[in-house]
């Protein structure tokens, strides 16, 4: 088991969805997808983004794309056109999620 940032096992992209954002994350291998599907829950993501995402987090699974999609409600300081914050479209929420550290089995890491 090694503690790694998600950068080393996944890629991500995010964008705005009304007053919230979506964060899509794709695992680098099918085994890592199974790991993320089991461990990167909506609760984990909500807790991680708790200072940014004031609403609920919903998770969707796309096993065909080795990907998870998270909807972060109320995460842009208001709507996309109304907010004054720098990242008004949630463009950095994807890279932000990749800073999350998780304990990943060594066998999965060697294949990444």
């Amino acid at each position: 088991m090694a503690r790694v940032q998600l950068f080393s096992i996944a890629i991500a992209r995010s964008g705005d969805k009304g007053a919230g954002s979506n964060v899509g994350i794709m695992a680098k291998t099918p085994e890592l997808y199974e790991f993320l599907a089991a461990n990167l829950t909506a609760d984990v993501v909500k807790d991680y983004f708790k200072e940014i995402c004031l609403g609920e987090v919903t998770r969707y699974e796309l096993p065909n794309l080795q990907s998870l999609n998270f909807i972060l409600e109320d995460s842009l300081g208001g709507g996309g056109t109304e907010t004054l914050i720098t990242d008004a479209q949630g463009k950095v929420h994807g890279p932000g999620l990749l800073h999350l550290e998780m304990d990943v089995p060594d066998a999965l890491l060697s294949a990444a």
């Binding site: 794709m26 794309l65 999609n69």
Partner: peptide
């Protein structure tokens, strides 16, 4: 596959 999947995930809501 990664660059195309990244865009598939962009601004995605309920995938189904």
């Amino acid at each position: 596959v990664e660059t195309v999947t990244s865009q598939l995930l962009y601004e995605l809501g309920d995938p189904e």
